[in-house]
């Protein structure tokens, strides 16, 4: 009985969302507010249990599961205070007089990520990719690939006008890009159709038992 009730609720919400294809209406508004509200609350809990609890609360307050200390344990617990305090500083924005303090947290967060990302990106997206594409011009495929790569790189060169040889190369580059995007488009549309089939199957099979 419970299964029937939940399946029916799921089906009604699915149809409410699909009703947006006609136009905005109260059913869609209800489904929209429901999913936004529930997901926002859900993620609040996820954030707490996945980030704040294991990284700040557990090490600082020495939470234990049985006899095992969780998080950072007992010796380095104070390290957890640093991100904890930086996180709390974000709330200074509610006090206009001290709002600027929160910018320190944001600066460390943004700058830290940008700096940490530089070396891995250089390795993964530049060096490894050049190495993988430095192929011998001994087959048509390789020639095709190298010409496409050079053309694409030229397209993303902003310091000179795309005229003359540079213009031709950039043109070749954009053709390669568009061919690639076309293939990607077709491939992704196919995967979206399979999502639609999944929903229709839910409605006709799980709910109405017609198929």
């Amino acid at each position: 009985m419970a299964t029937i009730i939940w399946t029916t609720i799921g089906a009604i919400l699915t149809l409410s969302v699909y009703s947006f294809l006609y136009k905005d209406n109260p059913f869609y508004k209800f489904a929209e507010h429901l999913v936004v509200g529930i997901s926002a609350g859900y993620y609040l809990v996820i954030y707490y249990f996945n980030f704040i609890q294991p990284n700040v609360v557990a090490p600082v307050f020495l939470l234990r599961i049985g006899n095992e200390a969780i998080g950072l344990g007992s010796s380095m617990w104070w390290l957890a205070l640093i991100p904890g305090i930086l996180g709390l500083l974000l709330y200074t924005r509610f006090f206009p007089k001290f709002g600027w303090v929160g910018r320190w947290s944001l600066g460390i967060y943004v700058g830290g990520y940008a700096g940490l990302g530089l070396s891995p990106i250089m390795q993964a997206r530049v060096l490894n990719q050049i190495g993988a594409n430095a192929l011998p011009l001994t087959s048509i495929t390789n020639v095709f690939l190298i010409v496409g790569l050079l053309g694409t790189l030229t397209y993303f060169f902003f310091s000179m006008k795309h005229k003359g040889v540079l213009g031709v190369l950039a043109r070749v580059g954009i053709v390669f890009l568009m061919v690639g995007f076309g293939a990607s488009f077709g491939y992704t549309v196919m995967s979206r159709v399979s999502l639609l089939i999944g929903r229709v199957s839910f409605l006709l099979h799980d709910w109405l038992h017609l198929i």
């Binding site: 530049v126 050049i130 190495g131 594409n133 430095a134 192929l135 011998p136 011009l137 001994t138 190298i146 790569l149 050079l150 790189l153 993303f156 060169f157 902003f158 310091s159």
Partner: peptide, 24 residues
């Protein structure tokens, strides 16, 4: 960034030439 891209292209071309010479 553009300058770095230029250097990248130079290395790519040298890499392709070296790979071709090795393969042949």
């Amino acid at each position: 960034q553009d300058m770095f891209k230029l250097i990248t292209v130079v290395f790519l071309v040298v890499g392709v030439i070296a790979a071709t010479l090795t393969a042949t």
